[in-house]
Design a protein around this nucleic acid. Sequence first.
RNA 1: CGGGGAGUAGCGCAGCUUGGUAGCGCACCUGUUUUGGGAACAGGUGGUCGCAGGUUCAAAUCCUGUCUCCCCGACCA
Length: 451
Amino acid sequence: MRYTKYFTTTLRDAPKDADTRGHALMTRAGFLKQSTSGIYSYLPLGLRSIRKIEGIIRKYMDEAGSVEVLLPMVQSSDVWIRSGRWEVYGKEMLRFQDRSGRDYCLAPTHEDLLADMLRTLVNSYSQLPFNLYQIQTKFRDEVRPRFGLIRGREFIMKDAYSFDMDEEASLASYEVMRQAYIKLFHHMGLDVREIEADSGEIGGSLSQEFVVLSDIGEDIAVSCVDCGYTSNAEVASEAFNLDAETLDVEALSEALKGTNCTRCKTGINDVWRVLELGHIFNIGTKYSVAANLTYKGQDGKDRPVHMGSYGIGVGRILAVAAQIYSDDAGLQLPINIAPFEVCIVSATTRDDEVVSTADKLYQQCLDAGIDAIYDDRDVRAGVKFADGELVGYPFVVVVGKRGLASGTVEVKARNGTKNGTDTATDTIAVPISDFPAEMKKILDRARPSVN
RNA sequence: CGGGGAGUAGCGCAGCUUGGUAGCGCACCUGUUUUGGGAACAGGUGGUCGCAGGUUCAAAUCCUGUCUCCCCGACCA
């Protein structure tokens, strides 16, 4: 992509209603534009990152045997009345009527419609097991949206559901999903922790959260520095007989200072603020019984399907990555979820050799399948460097007279850059003759290894 | 829903106390010079001061109402 043919913008000042650093930087870098409270437009760069996150999720869900579907966002009240939740679901469900006065809602979740739909499609044990997922926009009229994409009212979510004949098979499906989650988060470059969670209202026998440690986390967790066993504040407070009323980070840190891990018995506990990115549940038959979702077994008897449910907040992944992986100069998104992996910068546009070389390298990137943007604007080099740091391209390739004199270009890694100076510690000179092959090697080395 | 803050140019802000023809920085446009770390100079565009009503000779400024956004609490990916 040539910058001059693209559409993106950068801002020096963040809008005043962007509070967290990640949100302010994404706004400044041209990823996002708030539309109204809790509702955002994804601009070209932001959408590229979202698509990459979705692509990684699809890869690992597909590998785990889950099959993609797309359910409607606008749902008739019929479904919800049948599931009994039309009355129960509170104001978070946004309801409205069509021209004939029929009731509808914007789906806050999809279990009800899915179970309802499958009742007529699933009949026999021979159809089981299976697993369905979708990546969809959900709408919850939250009491208080906040922190940009962290808690929006409209948000993109991956939700998956497993359907098995019995509890044992369902637990096996759960484990497959759990492994897929670990891999996909690592592929994105995120340091996720698994937390033993309370199943809460969804119910069921087993539930885990996938969280990252972050100052904008909405929950508190206790983690063992040795074995890594992590539990949420409620579980930890039960284990240590603490008063759940006093559970802020400081109080919990104080209370648990020096205590040992409840699992490995030797490690020391540490307290963190954490943000939930994914949550998996082994539900059992609660929903299938309610929805009359049954299958006929080999013995001819009807039995309820055993379900599991598996969610990931897609937009939230981008939001928290922007928060965690950034500095004062801008974003530093992990390579697999950055909007572009490489930015080619022509240090001047007034030198024919520089321009023609930059053009050539860009074309080589296209031919080699390197995910590159070419900043071919007729602006000072400093503007391109500053914008490059703000957007956080993992690598910036500088084509300039200096390098050309020795037949090289500079490849600068974003995380090695020193703000405001030209003393990047992680800059290497790459011979122009070897460019695309060398660049590919550099990119591959930079990717997190999964497994 | 309870508590707190804010709406003035695309973005960030001043002006409001003490009414008197709306201002600054950045961005944007034109020209000249500049060109490997957010250039300089000169000129220029752009605002029904959130909206409605009221007080007044006169309202961004005072009064009343209203809408919106943000922050802190209970819920959630």
